[in-house]
């Protein structure tokens, strides 16, 4: 395909944004789209985690609520990892140094993947930063939350526990 004139491309992007607005609700109750996970120790796939309850979090160093979510995600990871649960956090910073600086100040005790191209958030049609998805052990997307609200931590935890219990009772 020939290069579109810039303005046309710009317009099509606008229309693309519009299209996503019309379906602004985050994905739920469907198979979680598989995405590659580029981690510090190499390349993984989200599908590799099938069989675990996954809290998939999209975050960025520049996002203020993300700072508040990290201590809680660490706590969840430490509390439920041995029951087959994991947090996976996909960073969307375009500059890796900024993500690294954030992690230096706010260390993550769960797997972190880096997606500077924004492919994964585009696939998930992430409506805002942060957005988190709960994926059950069969790989189904079950819940999505936009933003991180400290007051709702107990509710988030209940949702995780419910999926863990569902997994445990199915065995």
């Amino acid at each position: 395909m020939r290069h579109l004139p810039r303005i046309a491309r710009r317009l099509s992007l606008s229309l693309a944004i519009c299209a996503t607005l019309l379906t602004a609700d985050a994905l739920a109750n469907q198979p979680a789209p598989d995405v590659p996970l580029a981690m510090a120790d190499g390349q993984h796939q989200l599908a590799d985690y099938r069989g675990q309850v996954v809290y998939l979090d999209f975050w960025a160093s520049w996002c203020k609520p993300c700072q508040r979510s990290f201590p809680w995600m660490n706590a969840m990871q430490n509390k439920y990892a041995d029951r087959g649960f994991t947090v996976i956090a996909i960073n969307v910073d375009t500059e890796r140094e900024l993500a690294d600086a954030f992690l230096a100040a706010m260390p993550a005790e769960f797997p972190v993947a880096f997606d500077p191209q924004g492919n994964a958030p585009a696939l998930y049609r992430v409506p805002g930063m942060p957005t988190s998805y709960l994926i059950d052990h069969t790989g189904q997307l079950r819940l999505a939350h936009q933003g991180f609200h400290v007051q709702k931590q107990a509710q988030y935890e209940q949702e995780i526990v419910a999926l863990i219990e569902e997994m445990e009772s199915s065995k």
Partner: peptide, 13 residues
Amino acid sequence: GCASLGVQPWERD
């Protein structure tokens, strides 16, 4: 409105 411009939520760095 919809004809307007903008960025995706993860492009706000």
